[in-house]
Structures are given as structure tokens and as C-alpha cells.
Design a protein around this nucleic acid. Structure first.
Length: 186
DNA sequence: CCCTAGATTTACT
DNA sequence: GTAAATCTAGGGC
């Protein structure tokens, strides 16, 4: 399956968040391939988005969001969880990323069940910190180039276009008026 | 099914 | 100091 090119991510963050629905994340750990289709995303921008990590200045944590598009931004939160984002923004914007909130498991379900210590396929990747655990993504994968890395990529999907549901983003207190959470039905 | 509480570390108010 | 782009277990219905 074709890996998405850099230009895919060089557009408005909100546009890319919608476009990523139905695309596929492919992770390789040793000889095991783990993959899933993206079913839920959220856009986080820069100056106009008080809920974004990059709303203020560059810090050690958020610096990837100010860099090249198509790079992974993995951050640690709530004392125990990792979340996986992809840097995306148009040329005029300094910072932005798309949070991957849910995927539908495809290849490597056995490995995911082991990683999650959980048998129920429904509960494998239906949350931002669940899918990082299932795909073995930690801060080690922060800053990888998703357009060329051998162990973590985003490729075209096989799904037909489906209706997109837009909602307020989850778990934030600011900018709840922006409908920048996007999902497709499973 | 729903709800609430507790876990546990980082980053920056 | 404290809030955080969250999850799970445990109890009630």
C-alpha cells in the first residue's frame, strides 16, 4: 500500500484531520506487522486554538509541532499514557498536529491483544492511549518521519469514503465551540 | 449497561 | 503546586 507523501500533510490541520479518516497506520515490531484503519481524529492548531499544546511558545514537549509536517508527535500524559499525533499544517501556519484517537484493528490482532493484556478486540484501539499501547508507540517514536520510516508509516486505506461526524474535541476545557473531532462509523 | 474514583509523571503555570 | 488531548477496576442498575 502506498505511503502518504509529505504534501498530504502540508494543508490546513483541520482538513488533514478529516482526510486521515480511512487511512492506515502500519507499525512493524520485529517481524510482526500491526496495522489499523483510522476511525477518529482531532485537529490541534496554533494561535487560534487555546486547547492546543502549541498555543503558546515552543517548549521541549511541543517543539515537534513547530517542525516539518509528516513527523510523529508522541506525548506523555496523565502520568501513564502516550498519545500519537501527526504534524500537519499549511505553509503559513507555524504549528499544528492531528491526534489519532481511534483505529479499527486489522493485522497483528494477536500482538495487540498481548500488548494490551486484553482479549476483547473492541477495546484494543478505541482510544488515543489504547492504540499507542496496542501499536507499541512510546516517546521512542516521537519525531519519526511517517513518510519514510521503516517501522511506522501511514498509507492509503481500502475503505470507501463514508460520512464524517464532527464533534467538540474530547477532554479539553478551552475552545469547546470548535468541532474539530472527526469520526467515521465502524 | 452506567457511573465514579484512583492511578502516576510530566510540563509549565 | 497542579492540571493534564486517559484508562481501568469496581460497584450499582
Amino acid at each position: 500500500m502506498n505511503t502518504l507523501p509529505r504534501e498530504f500533510y502540508l494543508r490546513d490541520t483541520v482538513t488533514v484531520a478529516k482526510e486521515l479518516l480511512g487511512k492506515r497506520i502500519v507499525r512493524k515490531v520485529g517481524r510482526t506487522e500491526i496495522s489499523g484503519t483510522i476511525t477518529e481524529t482531532e485537529a490541534y492548531r496554533h494561535r487560534d486554538d487555546p486547547a492546543s499544546h502549541a498555543h503558546r511558545n515552543v517548549t521541549e514537549r511541543n517543539k515537534v509541532m513547530f517542525g516539518k509536517v509528516g513527523i510523529s508527535y508522541v506525548y506523555f500524559t496523565y502520568g501513564m499514557h502516550y498519545c500519537f499525533n501527526i504534524v500537519a499544517k499549511n505553509k503559513k501556519t507555524r504549528a499544528g498536529a492531528v491526534l489519532i484517537r481511534a483505529v479499527r484493528p486489522e493485522k497483528g490482532i494477536r500482538a495487540m491483544q498481548k500488548n494490551r493484556r486484553q482479549d476483547s478486540v473492541r477495546n484494543l484501539t478505541n482510544g488515543p492511549a489504547k492504540l499507542t499501547q496496542a501499536l507499541q508507540i512510546t516517546k521512542e517514536q516521537n519525531g519519526l518521519d511517517l513518510t519514510s520510516d521503516s517501522k511506522l508509516r501511514v498509507t492509503e486505506g481500502t475503505d470507501r469514503k463514508k460520512a464524517i461526524i464532527a464533534s467538540p474535541r474530547i477532554g479539553i476545557r478551552e475552545a469547546t465551540d470548535k468541532l474539530w473531532n472527526f469520526k467515521i462509523l465502524i
